[in-house]
Write a protein that binds this DNA or RNA. Structure first.
Lengths: 131, 131
DNA sequence: AACTAATATTTGTATATGCAAATGTTAAAA
DNA sequence: TTTTAACATTTGCATATACAAATATTAGTT
């Protein structure tokens, strides 16, 4: 189980790194950016929840996207809002295209049915095992 | 798929880190060590294959185990053999116990059948996606 | 209103891993 | 036999992620 889950995560990671190289983003950066474009003003904590990453990791991801002028942060009190820049909105269709390409690729290799089922099962198990 | 596989890998990782803390080893170190005890003289390349990690990562893992006097390396020509020390052999039963505890734990949470099936499916998919 | 507790985010530091280049070694070809 | 190609391992460097502590802010209690 340990190996299988890690091995699968790594090959999937590799496949997606490859796909998102087209927009010069890592998969995590890309998914975060898509979320922010779809829901401007989203907060780090909520992003962490959606992406299943820790808040500190989210901070680091945002920092990088900010340095590339793809998002901006506004800080009011203890909450921070993350907004996409026009540059990010422009990029959005390409992001979607990458996401689609990624899905198409692994569907082709593994079969749609199997894939969807596996994805559901994995998400389910991850939930159960969580804290 | 991307999230699901990563999320599952991370929770499984966390669970196993927890289990192997008893012997003060990371899961990767522990599995590598078990392989070496079971088959003394195993070579890094072959370990990389079994563990689905890259050779460079294996080198690093071995270095650490060597510094903790759990394995020794002998180098003849271009090939390297890794042998367990007596200390490692002594530790072996505890390693097995940890592995068992790990399995028991997630069986309890997820159910044996489901788990075994998922593990097989994941391994299978990882293989298909590989290069 | 002052103090404490809860919450959101960030920062410092550590680990795991990989890639690409470097090194050292054997095998094959010229 | 010298040169070249293939191979196994290691090193240097980079990335992704997490945990724990630090910060900053709001809410609740007395």
């Amino acid at each position: 189980m340990y190996f299988a889950s890690n091995a699968l995560a790594r090959v999937v990671e590799k496949l997606s790194i490859d796909v998102w190289k087209k927009v010069d983003l890592s998969p995590s950066h890309a998914y975060l950016l898509m979320l922010v474009v779809e829901e401007p003003g989203m907060q780090p904590g909520s992003l962490a929840g959606q992406l299943r990453l820790t808040p500190s990791t989210i901070t680091r991801l945002i920092e990088k996207l900010e340095s590339r002028k793809l998002v901006v942060r506004t800080n009011e009190g203890k909450i921070t809002n993350v907004y996409p820049t026009p540059k990010a909105k422009e990029l959005f269709p390409k992001l979607i295209a990458c996401a689609t390409e990624f899905t198409t690729k692994y569907y082709a290799i593994l079969g749609k049915e199997e894939c969807d089922k596996l994805t559901r099962t994995m998400a389910n198990m991850a939930d159960k095992l969580d804290p």
